[in-house]
Design a protein around this nucleic acid. Structure first.
Length: 285
RNA sequence: GUGUUUUAUU
């Protein structure tokens, strides 16, 4: 099963749902038995591939009946994967129903469950609902962790509540939760959208100083922010700094650069950069 | 030995 599971997982990663499922169908004939990993990879892959119906079908097959194949942890992981898949597809109500179902069967939601739900609420703009759950989760035995804070900060930022996002940034520190690279990247991105670019630069320096290395997310947020504000020269300075520090750009970074060049009426240069991007083997999206 | 959650561009 291990080998076949790895194949399923690999095919799913590359978006080959059908092919992955074909491997699954070969498990029994091969004299093996699908295990919880098999179903996790299949359910997760189908969800990511937008094949929710297939994911639901498998989920029901393996957890819908009376039979009990897997240990509690495996079942919680499968529930969490399905909750996340539904939530990411914008089906928050269905995801919440599934959380109720797991509760009813005696499986307490864990950090993954809460964090997935919070993320999907943020994604559909249900900030109030997210905050309610955020504030009550500690009573349910799940104190917010770094992922929770980062997710809710991002959710507030997307809702245009930059002030509240920074209040939560303070809040997490008073609760003894150390901000990490993702926290800073999230905040820098928010500041890039509100146009508070000098504050963004302050945070960029600060994160470095306390040992959080800026990465491609940091630089792409900064470059995009400066381009948005038509401060192309500063975007360029940051781009040079990025490469000097050995941080490789990716397609999103190229998109920001192209955007900045076009905004700066340097369409010819944008064309040249695009050619260079292709030459370097980057795939435009 | 394969395990589910958070951040960037348009």
């Amino acid at each position: 099963v291990y080998v076949l599971n790895r194949q399923i997982s690999g095919l799913m990663e590359s978006g080959y749902c059908e092919e992955a499922f074909a491997i699954y169908e070969k498990i029994l004939p091969a004299g093996c038995k699908p295990d919880s990993y098999t179903y996790l990879h299949l359910i997760k892959g189908f969800c990511e591939g937008g094949e929710l119906a297939e994911a639901r079908k498998l989920f029901k097959k393996v957890l819908g009946g009376e039979e009990d194949h897997f240990c509690g942890l495996s079942k919680v992981i499968l529930y969490n994967a399905m909750v996340h898949g539904l939530g990411s597809a914008g089906l928050v109500e269905e995801a919440l129903d599934l959380v109720e179902e797991m509760r009813g069967r005696g499986f307490a939601p864990d950090m993954y469950t809460y964090n997935s739900i919070l993320h999907s609420l943020g994604k559909v703009g249900k900030v109030t609902e997210a905050l309610t759950i955020f504030e009550s989760m500690a009573d349910q035995g799940c104190s917010p962790d770094i992922v929770t804070y980062n997710s809710v900060i991002s959710c507030l930022g997307k809702a245009g509540k930059a002030k509240e996002a920074f209040e939560l940034f303070e809040g997490m520190r008073t609760e003894g939760c150390q901000p990490d690279q993702v926290t800073f990247n999230t905040l820098i991105s928010i500041l890039g959208k509100t146009g508070e670019l000098d504050l963004a630069l302050n945070l960029y320096e600060f994160m470095t100083r306390i040992g959080c290395e800026p990465d491609v997310y940091t630089y792409t947020s900064l470059v995009a922010g400066f381009c948005r504000a038509n401060r192309i020269d500063e975007a360029l300075v940051l781009s040079v700094e990025m490469t000097e520090k050995g941080c490789a750009p990716n397609t999103a970074t190229f998109n920001s650069w192209l955007d900045g060049l076009c905004k700066g009426d340097k369409v010819v240069e944008a064309g040249l950069l695009f050619d260079k991007m292709l030459l370097l083997g980057y795939v435009p999206d």
